[in-house]
């Protein structure tokens, strides 16, 4: 569903005298339908950089990232920005650690807005179901999430990521600020997604979660070790 070949990424900080930081080099990675791959490695090794590169959020320095979109493998490193927007719309879902939304929009609308290919009524129904499943009480659905707790915001984010049922789902620490009960719900949701044939790539610091969902662990090594 998704593969990289010889992917590299470096950052050049022009404001810090042009310092160049190499993060990824020669990364060959793949994930198949219905499979969950966990990215592992010490802090600062480049896990998030890899995940963000896969989403096209970071611009790859070299190599290719091929995504199966409408039956074709498309390299998002060279694809036009418009095509990347469309791939994200239909194929590639992403759950970040932080919720970034237009202020004053209700939690329910935020989640329903991310649904694909359904009527607004169905989208709202699905959104309400997902939020309730994630233990967001109905009384909060109509409120904008700016005042919610960290764990609640993350669950809004998760609902938004899962409602689209994208064929590929990228998860950046989906359970980081959740209690055990909610963590178990997220594990169940990831397993269901896999059963539907969705390819999942995630960063899970919680080894319990990782062992529960991941079929395979992909080690991201700090640059100097990889050389």
């Amino acid at each position: 569903m998704l593969e990289t070949s010889n992917l590299s990424k470096n950052f050049r900080l022009h404001l810090q005298g042009g310092v160049r930081i190499d993060v990824l080099r020669g990364v060959d990675f793949h994930v198949s339908a219905g499979e969950c791959v966990a990215l592992a490695g010490p802090s600062g090794a480049g896990k998030t950089t890899l995940l963000r590169s896969l989403y096209g959020n970071y611009r790859a320095g070299g190599g290719a990232i091929r995504v199966r979109h409408d039956g074709q493998m498309i390299d998002i490193v060279t694809a036009s920005p418009r095509l990347v927007v469309e791939i994200r719309d239909r194929t590639l879902g992403y759950v970040s650690q932080f919720l970034r939304v237009v202020p004053r929009v209700s939690a329910l609308d935020i989640v329903a807005d991310a649904a694909r290919g359904v009527s607004p009524e169905t989208a709202h129904e699905k959104a309400a179901q997902l939020l309730s499943r994630l233990n967001i009480p109905t009384s909060l659905h109509a409120l904008p999430p700016a005042t919610f707790s960290g764990g609640e915001q993350q669950r809004i984010n998760l609902a938004r990521g899962f409602i689209g049922s994208h064929p590929i789902l990228l998860l950046d620490e989906p359970t980081a600020s959740l209690d055990n009960a909610n963590r178990d719900i997220v594990i169940a949701m990831i397993l269901e997604a896999k059963a539907q044939g969705i390819a999942v790539v995630g960063i899970f610091h919680d080894t319990f979660v990782r062992d529960a969902v991941a079929d395979r662990v992909f080690h991201v090594l700090p640059f100097q070790d990889a050389a």
Partner: peptide, 21 residues
């Protein structure tokens, strides 16, 4: 020029880096 989140999260040009920071 490019994708909004890519330009804002991973700016390449010195001026964009200055703007974002």
């Amino acid at each position: 020029a490019g994708l909004t989140d890519q330009v804002l999260d991973d700016p390449q040009h010195p001026y964009t880096q200055l703007l974002v920071s």
